[in-house]
């Protein structure tokens, strides 16, 4: 599940975000601790901690002292919003560029998408 491409801690943060998006960790519930995560993924605890802290910095998780880390209220919405932005940047923009090369207009593109998802 972990590949060598991006820094490991980023991959951890992404994986956790995915789990929050798909409801594995609903808002205001605890996420695995640094050590649980480290042992489960067989990675260094410091790396796991860095991954968790990335999400704390983004306001997705918050710390309850002495208890652990919890999914913040509104975390899911914020993730959806951030991911939508990323989606636009990573997929839609290149798609439009490629479409332009092929002479596909945005209108035709919408049509293609509708056909594909039908």
């Amino acid at each position: 599940m972990l590949d060598d491409g991006k820094p490991l801690f980023q991959q951890i943060a992404e994986q956790l975000s995915n789990d929050i998006l798909d409801g594995t960790y609903p808002e205001e519930t605890a996420v695995p601790s640094t050590n649980e995560l480290a042992q489960f993924l067989r990675i260094n605890p410091a790396t796991a901690g860095k991954g968790l802290n990335l999400l704390v910095d983004d306001g997705i998780l918050y710390k309850k002292r002495g208890i652990g880390m919890f999914v913040a209220t509104g975390a899911r919405d914020r993730l959806v919003e951030a991911r939508t932005r990323a989606f636009t940047h990573e997929f839609i923009a290149p798609m439009l560029r490629e479409a332009a090369k092929l002479g596909i207009t945005p209108g035709q593109l919408v049509h293609l998408i509708q056909e594909e998802s039908a």
Binding site: T34, A38, Q39, P45
Partner: peptide, 13 residues
């Protein structure tokens, strides 16, 4: 070995 190392390292850095 890896599992024990990680588990114990986490508890006792």
């Amino acid at each position: 070995f890896y599992d024990h190392l990680l588990a114990d390292f986490a508890e006792h850095p």
